[in-house]
Write a protein that binds this DNA or RNA. Structure first.
Lengths: 335, 335
DNA sequence: AGCGCTCCCGTGAGCGCTCACGGGACTGCT
DNA sequence: AGCAGTCCCGTGAGCGCTCACGGGAGCGCT
């Protein structure tokens, strides 16, 4: 929390009283002029407006907010704005918030735990509600957001907070079914390099594979980058040369795999099919376009805002089974 | 400006006085406890903290901001958060702001003029400074941001405001030089479909082409999308089948052209070289990776924040010739 | 003249918080 | 006993603004 380095002349803040004095009227009249209210003479209004302009007056948002409590500011916390998935979510949330006249301040934690905590600390005194993707333990969250509406994104566990869960089981099932229908029998997964526990997406894959009588054991971990996806594909093909299709943890990894396949001279989709997860818009930028289990990120953002609104107004909040975004297989060129 | 639909019970906001009463102390003691100040007994402090928690108290940011004027909020206005260029700029600005302890509220105007005006209206009463990419006339800007620090991005004209200009002349020159060195003699440009006047980037191209004795007339307009880039490439090749290299208005268009080239079976870079503009990170996602005249978006964001800080503090502001981000040719696979 | 009405405009209060100050209680010292 | 010093704590004021109210001036009407 750094003070705004107010070095220099510090011209003393101009208040509504200064304008009033300058225009020869009262505070209230100034207020009326600025807020476009009735009960004011046109000439007076103009005079006040002129005085305000001349003085460079701008109303204090704090004073205004204090008295008419009508400005909602919600904090959006994401791990990495440069990750297209979160960008899409952010854009959706922004849009949904705008339609309600709400402000959104965005915090990028850079996927670092310390930043996450620091952000929480700041946020707790700066916004009216929080939407975010947190990895810190719930107790920490609880500590800082006490009494504030919070909507989590992508948390798996049921929590004290509202959480929008992402359910890709059906979509992944459909993806595997599609691959099987195309004759693939050796299907690998490029999972996300996680600390210890395998990802939920991996579980979906396993379930789907088993359901189709496919060996679910062909799994390689990958960094959540294109390079990571490429490296993982190489590792996969080295370990299991007979793999003809891969499902990936997300689209970034899939794009890396696609690129790597081209470098290896393997034709996609004929010699190697690739299916990603997320359904990012940029999947359409590559050739062939990426087939993916797509999430409705717009819906996700809108859902989050909707739930915040309900929590805030005391209206009946959405139940956990309504706070779900389902993945849906979107076929394209890569599989 | 919609009121936060405060239907329902409306449990009356809990203030510092409620906590004070509940803990049997004065306002000031509560304040001391919450702000971790001295001159308070440990037991009292704990008692106050407990009371605050029990009541679900959370301090009003407005009241707090009103008395200690130490929170800076800057508004970041961009046309489209889904456009990777602006995402990168936003991420950079966010980071630079964070290091100063400033808040950033993001506004996405969706590239619509009405939204731009609406945003300006809102912003003027909600933030302390503005960084943004505006297309509206300067007079409108002036009207809403009077007396507020403003830093524009990518505006060409000298203005009353601080503006960070993007100078790609050298970079484009280098790009054309590179193509010429590789033996290309027929170089086209996929320009941006603009209302009437050709883009500045087009001027740079023309200048560079002429300097190398190349015909600068091979220009086709394109939508600022990948599809637009693809269509433009088709049009270009139809009109000028002998073109062997294209320079594009930006990377999105370039990526579309790359994709189209692959669809047309033209090998990149051997049968068709492509050079983009912006240097987006996602240029590395495709194969071959995109060669581009890269802009330092991080630097751009940092520069904008720095200038805001100077304008705010009365320190000597950066001059126009310091507010420049230069494009630099970044060679990669596509040319 | 007296009344009611409209049209303007100003005054007190208060939003919820922090800052500067004052002061009581208790200690240890001369 | 008297005094300075420390440790807590509370009181008034004020941040800049809006809301609810009150009230004067001017009009037309009876």
């Amino acid at each position: 929390m750094v003070l705004p380095s107010t070095a220099g002349a510090e011209p003393r803040k101009i208040t509504i009283n200064d304008v009033a004095k300058s225009a020869g009227v009262s505070r209230q009249t100034v207020s009326r002029a600025l807020n476009d209210k009735d009960e004011i003479d046109v000439d007076t209004k103009q005079r006040v407006l002129d005085a305000a302009r001349a003085l460079g007056y701008r109303p204090s948002r704090f004073a205004r907010g204090l008295v008419r409590q009508d400005t909602m500011t919600i904090g959006l916390v994401i791990p990495d704005l440069l990750n297209p998935f979160f960008t899409e979510v952010a854009a959706a949330a922004l849009e949904a918030a705008r339609s309600r006249g709400w402000q959104v301040v965005v915090y990028d934690t850079g996927d670092r735990a310390e930043e996450e905590l620091g952000t929480l600390q700041v946020i707790s005194s700066q916004v009216d509600a929080v939407i975010g993707y947190f990895s810190c333990p719930e107790s920490e969250l609880e500590k800082f957001t006490r009494g504030m509406p919070v909507v989590l994104i992508g948390r798996e566990q049921r929590t004290r907070f509202s959480a929008i869960t992402i359910d890709g089981s059906e979509g992944v099932h459909a993806a595997v079914a599609h691959l099987v229908a195309r004759g693939h029998t050796r299907i690998g997964m490029l999972d996300h390099h996680t600390r210890a526990e395998p990802s939920v997406r991996h579980e979906w894959f396993t379930t789907a594979a088993v359901a189709h009588g496919i060996d679910p054991g062909l799994v390689v971990g990958a960094d959540q980058t294109a390079d990571g996806g490429g490296a993982a594909l190489r590792a996969m093909l080295a370990a299991h040369p007979d793999v003809t299709a891969v499902f990936t943890f997300n689209d970034i990894i899939a794009l890396g795999a696609l690129r790597e396949a081209r470098r290896l001279g393997r034709n996609v989709p004929h010699e190697l099919a690739v299916i990603g997860f997320d359904g990012l818009q940029l999947g359409a930028l590559v050739e062939p376009p990426l087939t993916s289990v797509a999430l409705d990120t717009r819906g996700l953002g809108a859902l989050a805002i909707e739930q915040i609104a309900r929590l805030l107004s005391g209206t009946e909040a959405l139940a956990a089974d309504e706070l779900v975004v389902r993945g849906e297989l979107r076929l394209s060129g890569s599989a």
